[in-house]
């Protein structure tokens, strides 16, 4: 059975073996334009709240 892309790096180094590596779906969401547009709005609101609390 072929190794899954997200599992490939686990074998590369001991340092990576205990890390949390995103799977195919999580990686796809990171550059999914529709999802990221929603996150863009959410992140901006969250950041503006922190900025307003800091001034």
């Amino acid at each position: 059975m072929a190794i899954k892309p997200e599992e490939f790096n686990f074998a590369k180094h001991d340092q990576f073996n205990n890390a949390m590596i995103p799977g195919k779906f999580a990686r796809a969401l990171r550059t999914c334009k529709i999802w990221q547009f929603i996150r863009f709005i959410v992140l901006n609101i969250k950041m503006l709240i922190v900025v307003s609390k800091s001034h």
């Binding site: 997200e6 790096n9 340092q15 990576f16 205990n18 890390a19 949390m20 590596i21 995103p22």
Partner: peptide
């Protein structure tokens, strides 16, 4: 560590 592992 997750990002470093993901990017190798």
């Amino acid at each position: 560590e997750s990002l470093f592992a993901e990017r190798g």
